[in-house]
Design a binder for these strands. Sequence first.
DNA 1: GCAACGCTGGACCAATCGGTCTAATGCTGT
DNA 2: ACAGCATTAGACCGATTGGTCCAGCGTTGC
Lengths: 182, 182
Amino acid sequence: MNDRPLPTKDRLILSAATLFRTRGYHGVGLADLLADAKAPKGSLYHHFPNGKSDLAMAAATSASDEMLRLIAASFDGAESFNDGAKTLCFKLAKLFDITGWDTCPIAATLFEGPDNEDFRDHASHIYEGWIAEVQDHAARLGLSPEEAQAKSEHLFMLIQGGWALARARRSSDVIRKMTDRL
Amino acid sequence: MNDRPLPTKDRLILSAATLFRTRGYHGVGLADLLADAKAPKGSLYHHFPNGKSDLAMAAATSASDEMLRLIAASFDGAESFNDGAKTLCFKLAKLFDITGWDTCPIAATLFEGPDNEDFRDHASHIYEGWIAEVQDHAARLGLSPEEAQAKSEHLFMLIQGGWALARARRSSDVIRKMTDRL
DNA sequence: GCAACGCTGGACCAATCGGTCTAATGCTGT
DNA sequence: ACAGCATTAGACCGATTGGTCCAGCGTTGC
């Protein structure tokens, strides 16, 4: 599935991010993972000594970074909070159409994983990172600290829930229509 | 875990609903399931000829029914849409505290399951059922059809997303605070 | 040229997976 | 009491799971 030139470690992370996102942590076996990344088992345990769980952590981080880039790209040229929020929603709707009806990568990878403390902490940390990123932009665009926090959390919840509904409907319309209610 | 007097079939559904909700479809093995329900394997395949997947469907339906009852109970005595929505949020926050940081039972059971068409359809059907139930109450409370639909979808997304954030934070506060923004 | 080392390839493992099958055990109506 | 059917109990199965281990490959520095 992925380009051969990429280093093995990156191929593993990329495959893991994709597969976990679509089928959840427990839904993906090492066999699927290694076939998709075109890597042998030895490489996995060389780069990720703790195997599947280490890889899941890395995949979640990678997915989170992509999300942070998307947030930055949406708010950087924005003239108001609502402006940036709308752009973000449209970008996410497009992403939804491309990747196709997957879950939130963090939830699929970390929440469905072993009910490990590390997993939950990492997921929490990533979510707070997204909210903090939006919050910073909100503050920069003139909102009071309280307003900034409330609005970023609100946006997070709407997107998270909208994504779930969009998945059930196999249509990104709700994510786009969401912008009317901001 | 469950009361012995309950018939085996019901015990199976109850255990399945609980376990799938907390650890996801693939995260639960038949062994865990049968141990929790105190039922032998033969009973499972007698009541649910297709095994795990049949049971997951039934568990999702059961969880959905509970949700529908919760919605009805919240809106029945409500004097306005926002009134009912607030009550629902408070009830859900309490439920969240009791059950403790689980995912949406439908998502955990059906979305993480085999990427079967039946599973996705059932999940979609259940979600639309929740929205339709809220929508009916909204219409009854005087909202126009368009407003009723928009507001019920909006509420669904907020709750779904709020639940996810609450889970990451291990705190139902966001669900309660959500009511300020309706 | 050669030693050292990062990395790969895959054979192998015990444990667990979901599922099948059959014998025994209720419980029912007659 | 007996027949007939619904349910239970669990031994058993092949496939797959995540994980270990080591021999060999290829590149690098000397």
